[in-house]
């Protein structure tokens, strides 16, 4: 598992995602991208859905990307990756490409993944293409000006689920995308956060060892959309996990394991909600009913997850040796030297 030193060394040796982009100050997305890409030793090819990340990093003729990178549209990143990965297979089979591992990494926002890109993702997972799909979940369509998505939390104020005299914001609970992904029987799916870089990095390493699709859902603070000062990005991502709103876990071959236990399991959700402008309306007149409902659902979801992971503890105990062996086995593949990473100017 790469340590922070290794990640920093990779970053220093040849940065895959350089500065000069136009993501907002304090945006969580670069933390996702750098942690993911610096945790992968092999050459990578990045496929990106439309959204803040793509728009803010590739204004022609400039680019932030120091790796091969492809964007086609909003809803099709997983389908595009299917094509790239299949081309790789075809070209290796026909001797036109060397049989050296390339890791295909897809980045899509919550809109591009939970909503408009869900079908393409589902199709690609079912077909079993080898790629790591990373959803950077900032809980709304941010690039188009903070509209609700199916990842937007219950009661959040967005420009299309505004709080008003008759409304307390988004009326629906967020979708559990990770569960939907797990239902595709892929061997690795996880939830991670920008606040827990080592956990995210470990998950990337685990996910990219497999010759199959893998998926990581990463909570990524959007200071603009959540209504936070840019220096609060990591703190609020951490609070989401500490309040058990965004638990960190992995699902290996269908078995659940919580990877970070909250320090104080009784920390109320209020601690995460209170200072975000998107939830401010709930506190102006203390909407006790809505707040109680949010707490109830957080508790229920957390308890379900806890029960599941306790029930699966035995499975992990039984399979830990096999998993360690299988995973070390694949990790032992000769990792291509980092020198294949060119560093040209954008």
């Amino acid at each position: 598992m790469p340590s922070i030193k290794q990640i920093a060394r990779n970053e220093a040796a040849s940065s895959r995602f350089v500065s000069g982009h136009s993501l907002c100050r304090g945006c969580g997305i670069p933390v996702v991208v750098r942690t993911v890409l610096n945790s992968i030793e092999a050459p990578v090819v990045v496929i990106n859905a439309t959204g803040c990340l793509e728009v803010a990093t590739t204004r022609y003729p400039h680019t932030t990307w120091q790796v091969p990178w492809l964007h086609i549209a909003f809803e099709n990143a997983a389908a595009a990756a299917s094509g790239v990965e299949t081309a790789y297979k075809a070209l290796v089979k026909r001797g036109r490409l060397p049989d050296e591992p390339i890791v295909f990494v897809v980045f899509g926002g919550d809109g591009g993944t939970y909503d408009i890109g869900l079908q393409a993702l589902s199709g690609a997972l079912e077909r079993g293409h080898r790629f790591l799909y990373v959803c950077y979940d900032n809980e709304a369509y941010m690039n188009t000006g903070i509209q609700r998505s199916s990842a937007t939390p219950f009661a959040a104020n967005t420009t299309t689920s505004p709080a008003g005299k008759q409304s307390f914001g988004k009326l629906q609970k967020r979708k559990d995308l990770t569960a939907i992904v797990v239902a595709h029987h892929i061997p690795y799916a996880a939830q991670a956060s920008i606040s827990h870089w080592q956990d995210l990095s470990d998950k990337v390493v685990a996910a990219t060892r497999l010759a199959s699709p893998s998926f990581i859902n990463v909570l990524s603070t959007c200071p603009l959309g959540w209504g936070l000062e840019p220096n609060q990005t990591v703190r609020f991502a951490r609070l989401a996990t500490e309040t058990r709103y965004w638990p960190l876990y992995e699902v290996i071959e269908g078995h659940y394991r919580i990877t970070e236990q909250p320090l104080d399991p009784s920390l109320p959700i209020r601690a995460w909600l209170e200072d975000q402008v998107r939830f401010k309306h709930l506190f102006q007149h203390e909407d006790a009913e809505v707040l109680a409902r949010i707490q109830r659902e957080v508790d229920r979801d957390w308890n379900n997850l806890k029960r599941r992971s306790e029930a699966d503890a035995q499975w992990f105990a039984r399979h830990s040796e096999r998993l360690a062996k299988e995973w070390t086995g694949s990790a032992a593949r000769p990792a291509p030297a980092m020198t294949s990473r060119t560093n040209t100017n954008p």
Binding site: I47, A80, V84, T86, A87, A90, L91, L97, A120
Partner: peptide, 10 residues
């Protein structure tokens, strides 16, 4: 979309 991905990949 997959065709575009494949063609982009050579």
């Amino acid at each position: 979309s997959a065709a575009v991905g494949a063609a982009q990949a050579g």
